[in-house]
């Protein structure tokens, strides 16, 4: 059971994540977009969207810090476990609440603004459900661990397990002992990674960082376009 949950599932999710993106990129470049709904409504979006996105970026950084960087490194840098823990919990909770608040506004907006709701596909709904689940569980795990117990040192269990997956020496035992909320959070995250390439979340992978350095005006030659009898590209839907 442990092997199934903490070894097989992560590898499946990872494989689907990577191959899924490759496949989607080749097959569906045209569908690779944020599908912004700002045209329909921007008052709620203007609050909710930055709140959510900046929140989740901080959360992401926090996860990178907590999962990828081994405890021994931070300690070697002179950061004690207590300091680390306090900073992580405070920042994490603030960012988590922002993210969740932003998400709540966005979901409320999706549901109540007519045009936005009509433009919501089933795919989007599934994505929203899983995403909310992951965020709620993650926030709950942090809050519960610190309210009930004196905090949980996930850097002794969850993080080494996470890294062990990438070393190709997975160690399920580490995860088996973690509190259930942490386990659920990890599992739901795996689910999110597995559906990721098939949802609009793909836009994150093409975050336009290159914009900061490229020249303003882009020139391209006609020759760059694929030549000859290329396969016809996707067309558009006629207006009603």
């Amino acid at each position: 059971m442990n092997v199934l949950l903490w070894v097989v599932a992560p590898y499946i999710a990872l494989t689907v994540f990577v191959l899924g993106h490759l496949w989607r990129y080749r097959y569906d470049k045209f569908g690779w977009t944020t599908r912004s709904s700002q045209m329909y409504e921007s008052r709620l979006l203007r609050v909710g969207s930055p709140l959510f996105h900046f929140g989740i970026l901080v959360v992401l950084l926090g996860h990178v810090g907590g999962l990828v960087i081994p405890k021994s490194w931070t300690e070697a840098a002179g950061v004690s476990e207590e300091t680390y823990h306090v900073v992580a919990v405070v920042l994490g909770t603030i960012a988590g609440v922002c993210t969740l608040g932003g998400l709540a506004i966005l979901i409320y907006r999706r549901r109540t603004v007519g045009p936005v709701f009509t433009a919501t596909t089933r795919n989007d709904k599934l994505m929203y459900a899983v995403l909310t689940l992951v965020i709620v569980l993650g926030l709950a795990a942090t809050v519960m661990a610190n309210l009930v117990g004196g905090g949980y040192d996930y850097r002794a269990t969850v993080s080494p397990w996470f890294r062990s997956i990438f070393y190709l020496r997975p160690d399920p035992a580490l995860m088996a002992g973690a509190p259930p909320l942490f386990q659920l959070h990890a599992l739901s995250a795996l689910l999110l990674f597995a559906i990721w390439p098939f949802t609009r979340l793909v836009h994150m992978l093409t975050a336009p960082i290159g914009y900061l350095t490229r020249p303003y005006v882009v020139y391209r030659s006609r020759d760059d376009m694929r030549a000859g009898s290329r396969t016809p590209r996707r067309g558009w839907e006629p207006s009603r």
Binding site: D28, G31, R35, A119, R233, G235, W236, E237
Partner: peptide, 16 residues
């Protein structure tokens, strides 16, 4: 037209 046939919403699906 391809319509909303693709599994990933509006713009997805095989090339028409």
């Amino acid at each position: 037209g391809p319509g909303m046939t693709g599994p990933f919403g509006e713009a997805s699906g095989p090339p028409a």
